[in-house]
């Protein structure tokens, strides 16, 4: 079987999965990553979000064979043990209850702030629309993203 190669967090991996396998299953099962998580398998909640060439992508519906760019995951964000500014902001604001969805909010916020570090409150709400947090930590997430924006700008 033709092997697929993907670059994840700066390292190239040859993976054994069939080409139709969603990226999420490859990241979790073959690469044993824990950041992106299964939530719906339907691209409706965002818990599986990764960045591909800086764009937020729902890995649960993206076939591994369609992944051409560099993949960044939550697992690879902290540089030298130092959390990414968005992670640091989410920690400072304690923006989670169960924390299961945090991956989606953090990765999507990074994609947004790398493009638009001066995102307004309305833009933040608009761009993070569609991600799901079931515990209802929306207010803390908004504070965290605003804090991250202030630090990254």
């Amino acid at each position: 079987m033709a092997k697929t190669t993907i670059t994840v967090d700066g390292r190239a991996h040859e993976v054994a999965a069939t080409p139709d396998t969603p990226l999420l299953y490859v990241l979790r099962e073959e690469l044993s990553l824990n950041g992106p998580k299964f939530g719906c398998g339907l691209a409706q909640c965002g818990t599986c979000t990764v960045l591909v060439d800086g764009r937020a992508v729902r890995s649960c519906v993206t076939p591994v064979s369609a992944v051409k760019g560099a993949v960044r995951t939550l697992d690879g964000l902290a540089a030298g043990g130092k959390p990414h500014p968005v992670q640091a902001a989410f920690i400072a604001e304690e923006a989670a209850q169960c924390g299961y969805c945090a991956n989606g909010w953090i990765m999507s916020s990074i994609a947004m702030l790398e493009k638009n570090p001066k995102a307004t409150d309305a833009q933040i709400r608009e761009q993070l629309s569609g991600l799901k947090c079931r515990c209802g930590t929306h207010m803390a997430i908004l504070r965290a993203v605003r804090r991250a924006a202030a630090q990254m700008a």
Binding site: S32, L33, N34, G35, K37, F38, T73, L74, D75, L77, A78, P83, Q87, F90, I91, E94, A95, A96, G99, Y100, A102, N103, I106
Partner: peptide, 21 residues
Amino acid sequence: VARRDIPAKMLGTTDYLTNVR
């Protein structure tokens, strides 16, 4: 007191059930 479960949740290192392999 800061919640002790928070940093791991944001760093992706929490020992979630879904990670049991």
